[in-house]
């Protein structure tokens, strides 16, 4: 999974004095994209009504199609469904699960090693091919989709990187996609003065 948690500009690695090298970062990441590198992830568990209910309870979402079979059928579903926005939840790795390195992780390391030491999340875009149901068990394919030219932003000089996760069901049919765009930048300010984005 990409790190979907960096809504602040907290540094992720000890700072070095390396000057940012956009050309080097771009060329290495372009190779990852051109080689079509992908990490496959298979979720161990199927979606359950309990997991759906735990999520909708905490969100305060009273839409009955998530909990009531009759209401879900009345709304045109075969039975209760998971919220569309929970797509990515069902292919999150388990706590402390050891995963093989992903091309996305490698690309993020390349950005850090080339002086783009700080990160801020910019966009998250999901598309849904169908509603997911209990018993659906997802697998996913995660790749780097694009890397921008060097941009001059309010935070500093940086590169925008877009990652793509494709989610599939057990019949290998695509059920949705998630694109995640982050800005990796060389901060203009001192580390101890960085504030929340």
């Amino acid at each position: 999974m990409p790190d979907t948690d960096t809504m602040t500009t907290a540094d992720t690695k000890p700072r070095t004095c390396t000057l940012p090298d956009a050309d080097s970062a771009r060329s290495q990441i372009t190779q990852i994209i051109e080689r079509g590198e992908v990490r496959h992830y298979q979720s161990r568990y199927a979606i359950t009504d309990r997991a759906i209910g735990a999520l909708t309870d905490v969100l305060g979402d009273a839409n009955p199609i998530y909990t009531d079979d009759v209401a879900a059928r009345a709304a045109g579903h075969p039975g209760i469904v998971a919220p569309a926005t929970s797509l990515q939840v069902w292919a999150m790795n388990r706590l402390d699960e050891q995963l093989p390195p992903s091309p996305v992780d490698r690309a993020y390391q390349i950005l850090q090693a080339n002086g783009f030491t700080s990160v801020v999340a910019v966009n998250g875009d999901q598309t849904y091919d169908r509603y997911l149901r209990p018993e659906d068990r997802l697998h996913s394919e995660e790749r780097v989709e694009s890397i921008s030219e060097l941009k001059h932003t309010g935070l500093g000089e940086g590169l925008f990187i877009t990652t793509l996760i494709t989610f599939l069901d057990e019949a290998d049919e695509q059920v949705g996609t998630m694109r995640f765009r982050t800005l990796w930048y060389a901060p203009r300010t001192q580390p101890d003065t960085i504030t929340e984005a």
């Binding site: 009955p64 919220p83 569309a84 998250g124 875009d125």
Partner: peptide, 28 residues
């Protein structure tokens, strides 16, 4: 993911259980 879930809730709170979401794009 919680933010995304709340955005979805906000739309279906308004539109009701028969709303079908096709995509959600969020700028953070």
């Amino acid at each position: 993911l919680t933010t995304t879930g709340l955005v979805g809730r906000y739309v279906t709170d308004w539109g009701g259980p028969r709303v079908r979401l096709s995509s959600v794009s969020i700028r953070l």
